[in-house]
Design a protein around this nucleic acid. Structure first.
Length: 292
DNA sequence: GCGTCCAGGTCTACC
DNA sequence: GGTAGACCTGGACGC
């Protein structure tokens, strides 16, 4: 297996980032907890589809393995992709100091948590987030697996995530025959169509020069994206102004911070207000804390 | 095997 | 601005 490395900064922590949320088990990602390996099938700029996997190296670099020989340009492309997926360029210094100032939150930096695993494209994060709305995690996994079946395949037949054009090329009915996304199918098709036609460009939402309020406003225009989905997506964009509350967050808050009593969203917002622009990340850290 | 209930978040209509 | 009901799937449960 061809192997190459990706050097990272001391502040980066590989496995806490991979397991920061459920994306690591959604196709075309897969992961091995025991061997601490993240794998994925990806389509490169050249249209070539191949599988890569990444694991910790010598403590200052990651080891990347591909299932086929790759050129040095392809190695660089995969390095950029891995760095993006693992949010390597995110500076969490201000978040860690904000969290440390709150009682009970010093574990976050100690554990190296805070970075979110993302997809290589905002389109993929949008599609997957949409398929987490109003459904169970088991159903989300099923819908994403079936959606991924529409993507181009590696030599061993494993599919990559479909491009928006591939999804938009189907009729909404044909898409739903494949994905079984219910009423979400129309929203997914519309989203793919808007991106494929150039009506929207989700990649620009990653631009840090763009105000988060503007990103929120534009996300609000998308069918199927309400407060939860927008907040969850913004977290993946490295923007933490929104809480993105769902049933998991509310149950966590009820259990940990409200004596088992349901809290209103206003009460939850008041609790996380001291975290300022990091509040959306602080909520998620509490969810992770509970799961660990 | 069949029918019913339930969980999940967003949209639309209505007040 | 707030609320009720519909949307869709599949698992759990009772018969």
């Amino acid at each position: 297996m061809p192997t190459f490395t990706l050097v990272y900064a001391p502040s980066f922590h590989f496995w806490p980032t991979v397991t920061s949320h459920g994306w690591c088990v959604l196709s075309p990602f897969s992961y091995d907890d025991e061997g601490q390996t993240l794998a994925r099938v990806d389509q490169l700029a050249s249209s070539r589809v191949l599988r890569w996997q990444v694991r910790s190296g010598d403590g200052s670099s990651l080891q990347i393995e591909t299932d086929e020989a790759v050129t040095s340009a392809e190695q660089d492309e995969i390095r950029v992709r891995v760095a993006r997926i693992l949010s390597m360029d995110q500076d969490l210094t201000a978040f860690y100091s904000t969290a440390a100032a709150q009682p009970g939150y010093d574990w976050i930096e100690a554990r190296g948590a805070g970075r979110m695993l993302t997809s290589p494209s905002v389109w993929e994060d949008l599609a997957k987030t949409l398929l987490t709305t109003n459904t169970t995690w088991t159903m989300t996994r099923g819908m994403v697996t079936r959606l991924t079946e529409l993507g181009d395949r590696a030599a061993d037949g494993t599919p990559s995530f479909p491009r928006p054009e591939q999804v938009a090329a189907l009729t909404p009915d044909a898409l739903n025959d494949q994905v079984r996304a219910g009423y979400r199918g129309v929203y997914l098709h519309t989203l793919a169509d808007q991106i494929a036609s150039g009506a929207i460009d989700p990649e620009r939402w990653r631009d840090t020069a763009l105000d988060s309020a503007q990103v929120y406003k534009e996300l609000k225009q998308l069918k199927g994206f309400g407060p939860y989905a927008i907040g969850a997506l913004m977290r993946l964009l490295g923007r933490f102004d929104e809480l993105g509350l769902d049933s998991v967050c509310r149950t966590m808050f009820k259990t940990r911070f409200n004596n088992g009593e349901p809290a209103t969203d206003k009460q939850i917002a008041a609790y996380y207000a001291p975290f300022g622009r990091w509040r959306g990340l602080a909520v998620w850290m509490d969810v992770i804390w509970e799961e660990n």
